[in-house]
Design a protein around this nucleic acid. Structure first.
Lengths: 325, 325
DNA sequence: CTGTTAGCGCGTTCAC
DNA sequence: GTGAACGCGCTAACAG
């Protein structure tokens, strides 16, 4: 088989009877270059005719930056909602000509630098924080945007904080609105989730100090926790997420029909299992689509050297009312 | 700020007092080149001292292939298990010096060619099938391995079929072993899942033709389905996955304590909500770790121009027995 | 053996 | 609108 040579800009130039420089100018619509409409269309035609596609590698080598946006995934289990967010983000970035990819796997496996050096991304997103050294290294390497989706607000002045506090606030607001005075907070068992759990809990605190208890994803231990909450006079539980909420529900059930009659539970995420729970779970959801659009806008702006708009926090988070609260 | 110039192999060469070629030979341990231990260590030292890291872009440009393995995610919602698989895969590939990234988002957003052209991957994995044209284009572009994790077996002779049939088989086996004679199959509502559902269903068929019914993730419609199954004399249900199983359970519950007393239900995936369900859900899980190791081995082999070992199917799929079946 | 020279891969961009 | 150099690593051909 006759090794099917790549089509390069030189081929296009030859076919159009111009120089490679001209091809580049036309195809990139380089500002400050005047190319006659005639030449212009000859080039365009030649490129289309040959099925020319520029080499991403060569372009990256030259410009020092690819059109890939890299997202570093956290090492804790990602669920449906995150998957959803990534999908939307990908779609939005594609609209701007950027290719979105995600890298799963903990930093433990491989130093984070190895990852972005292999990609030469235009921007890097991460769920957890970067160290200052890492941020600096990436910036120096020409990465336009480096943001943590979580982490201390305003750390680098460019955080894209998903307002986790708002989630907790909405939960507590709903429960208090339903007349609950003493709240409990069902904290996740997995320590890796702390980065999400803390801000959510602090949101709940805006409505009074809740009784915090760690609830494993297991009916037995969850029952203990529920029993103690009841003894504390707690009547409403804000759970870290739907799974923890499901555990609380399972725990209450195990206690028998006695105590937990009036126990209200509210989760986060609205996973499919939530509506199928016993009783159907009231929960709080984030509009992943809206969030994705905002993230994409910010990334695109940053890659272009500009600053994005602030996150519109209204309407972003909604309560889905079902029977558990 | 004095633009922090990149460190190149030329810098290393200068510092070590050798040519760039020598640097390359030493750093890549190029076979068939004999470099004296003295020179060798001088180069290594210089490289380390300068913190030299080769430019991935330049290397990709030259060799026509990066060390990135691209995985095209399906457009249907990915859950925890897939996330898990990707994480494990990433870890395993890292061990071989390959960088794993996933691209979410449907092919509708952007032709698949745009994606891999932006990455120049060493290998491409996909959940759904590639068209012959796509496969051919990638091969021609130098992508070493192109596989579909699903799709018609043996299509390109290199499928990495996750044995979905085996999953259905295990489900039916468990139910039949418990004495159930007439089985039902709870088919997912989302048409995008068909690619997974069909092989699973065919696995169930090995134990007799089940009564197939589509079950939406909603208690109401699910109750209808359950009622009709009961009327058919069905006593055991194999569900497409845990979520659908949860819906079946919710449907049965809605029917009241009458009919579904002896209805057995078995899911797939063992999501966290499964053990918290009412009753706790019996389900079938795949050893994602083992699967990841196998996929990684195959990819590494293919990138090296070799062929990987066959998938060990024993022990890969296990039944997690709880109370629902 | 040891190591060097030189040119390629391909798009971008400055100076004429 | 063009020529030429550049970004950076790889490797065939070649000299000591």
């Amino acid at each position: 088989m006759p090794e099917p040579r790549r089509i390069t800009s030189a081929d296009v130039a030859r076919r159009a009877g111009v120089s490679r420089a001209t091809v580049s100018y036309v195809l990139n619509a380089t500002p400050g270059q005047s190319i006659s409409p005639a030449t212009r269309s000859r080039v365009l035609e030649a490129a289309a005719g040959l099925g020319y596609a520029p080499s991403a590698a060569a372009r990256t080598l030259r410009t020092g930056r690819s059109d890939v946006v890299l997202c570093l995934l956290p090492d804790w289990p990602i669920g449906n909602e995150v998957g959803n967010l990534l999908g939307n983000l990908s779609t939005e970035l594609a609209r701007a000509g950027l290719t979105f990819v995600a890298h799963p796997g903990s930093r433990a496996d491989r130093p984070i630098a190895e990852i972005w050096k292999a990609i030469t991304p235009a921007a890097v997103l991460s769920f957890s924080d970067f160290s200052d050294g890492e941020t600096e290294a990436m910036r120096a390497a020409g990465v336009a945007l480096v943001v943590a989706l979580l982490g201390r607000a305003g750390r680098h002045g460019r955080e894209l904080e998903v307002p986790q506090q708002l989630i907790g606030r909405r939960q507590a607001e709903h429960l208090c609105g339903a007349g609950h005075r003493r709240l409990g907070y069902a904290y996740p068992d997995d320590p890796r989730l702390q980065i999400f759990a803390e801000p959510r809990l602090s949101g709940v605190r805006a409505f009074g100090e809740p009784v915090v208890r760690t609830v494993p994803l297991d009916a037995g231990p969850a029952a203990d926790a529920v029993a103690r909450w009841c003894a504390d006079g707690v009547t409403g539980i804000c759970a870290y997420n739907d799974e923890v909420a499901l555990a609380v529900l399972a725990g209450a059930r195990r206690l028998g029909p006695g105590a937990p009659a009036g126990l209200a539970v509210i989760g986060v995420d609205d996973i499919p299992a939530a509506r199928l729970a016993v009783p159907p779970l009231t929960t709080v959801t984030t509009d992943q689509r809206m969030l994705a659009v905002h993230l994409a806008t910010t990334v695109v702006a940053a890659v272009g050297g500009r600053t994005g708009p602030p996150l519109p926090t209204d309407d972003l988070i909604r309560v889905v009312v079902r029977e558990s609260a």
